[in-house]
C-alpha cells in the first residue's frame, strides 16, 4: 500500500488487452475497497506508459491474437514490473493475460512466442475454440464455486508443482488435467498470481474471489458486503 494508504490498482494495458471487458475487474476491486472506507485508485497503464512498480495489485485482461503477442513483448521489456509481480504485488490475469505470463505461447501455425515466464505454464492452440459458461470449484479455501464465461482456443499445460485455480465442473478451462491428477483444471494459482480463463468479468460474478485478493493486499479481514442482485446473478449461472 502507498504511504497515504490509498490502494493503487494497476490496470495493465487496457488499450491492448481490453477486448473482453475484463477492465471491469479494476472497478470492482476499487469499489469494494471504497465501500469499506478504504481509499482506492485505479492506475491505468497503457502501452505508452512506463509501468509503476508500487501498485498493490496488477490486472491483465483478454485480447486478440496480435494484441496478445504485443502485450507479451511489452511485458518482457519491463523487467521491473515483473519483479514487482513476483515479489510485492498480487496479479489477476485473465485469458490472454494469463497466457502471456507463461513460458511460451504457440500460434495456429505452430510458431512459438516467449511469455513473461512468471508462471510455469505453456499454451498451444486447441482444435476448436471453447466458448461458453464455465463452473469450477475454486482451490482457495472459502471461495467456493467460480462462474464465468470462457472464449478462447488455448490449451494450457501446467508444469509440475503448479496448481490450478479450480477444478472444472462444466466447460473447458485449461483443457488439460492438473499435474499428477485426473482432475480437469481451470486457471492457475500461485502465491502472488491468480490466472483464469473466466470473463464475466470474473470478479463481478465471484465477489468472494475479489475479497480474497483484497484481504491479501490489505492484510485486513474485510467486513462482508451485501450487494443487491448479487445473489440473483450467481443463481443465474450456478
Amino acid at each position: 500500500m502507498s504511504p497515504d494508504s490509498t490502494v493503487a490498482i494497476g490496470l495493465l494495458l487496457p488499450d491492448v488487452l481490453g477486448t473482453y471487458s475484463d477492465t471491469g475487474n479494476a472497478t470492482i476491486l476499487a469499489q469494494r475497497l471504497r465501500w469499506r472506507g478504504i481509499p482506492a485508485e485505479i492506475v491505468t497503464i497503457t502501452a505508452r506508459d512506463t509501468p509503476p512498480t508500487s501498485c498493490a495489485v496488477y490486472l491483465l485482461g483478454g485480447g486478440e491474437d496480435t494484441a496478445q503477442l504485443f502485450a507479451a513483448d511489452w511485458l518482457r521489456r519491463h523487467p521491473e514490473l515483473r519483479l514487482a509481480m513476483e515479489a510485492s504485488a498480487v496479479t489477476l490475469a485473465v485469458c490472454a493475460g494469463l497466457q502471456v505470463l507463461g513460458q511460451s505461447m504457440t500460434d495456429t501455425r505452430g510458431k512459438h512466442y516467449p511469455g513473461l515466464e512468471l508462471l510455469d505454464i505453456t499454451t498451444a492452440p486447441g482444435r476448436q475454440r471453447s466458448v461458453g459458461e464455465v463452473i469450477s470449484t475454486c482451490a482457495i479455501p472459502g471461495v467456493g464455486s467460480l462462474t464465468g464465461f470462457e472464449n478462447h482456443r488455448g490449451i494450457t499445460t501446467l508444469g509440475p508443482g503448479t496448481t490450478a485455480l479450480g477444478r472444472v465442473v462444466t466447460g473447458t478451462g485449461n483443457g488439460t488435467t492438473e499435474p499428477g491428477t485426473r482432475q480437469r483444471g481451470e486457471g492457475v494459482l500461485t502465491e502472488r498470481v491468480i490466472g483464469t480463463y473466466l470473463h464475466g468479468p470474473v470478479l463481478a460474478r465471484n465477489p468472494a474471489l475479489a475479497d480474497h485478493i483484497l484481504q491479501k493486499i490489505t492484510g485486513q479481514s474485510l467486513a462482508p458486503l451485501e450487494l443487491p442482485d448479487q445473489a440473483a446473478l450467481r443463481a443465474t449461472y450456478l
Binding site: 471491469g24 469499489q31 463481478a204 448479487q230 440473483a232 446473478l233 443465474t236
Partner: peptide, 19 residues
C-alpha cells in the same frame, strides 16, 4: 432476462436503481 447482471453492473457504477 439478465436484469441481475445489469443490476450488479449498475451498483458498481454507483447508480441507485431498482431491478
Amino acid at each position: 432476462e439478465r436484469a441481475a447482471d445489469l443490476g450488479v453492473r449498475l451498483s458498481y457504477a454507483g447508480l441507485e436503481h431498482q431491478t
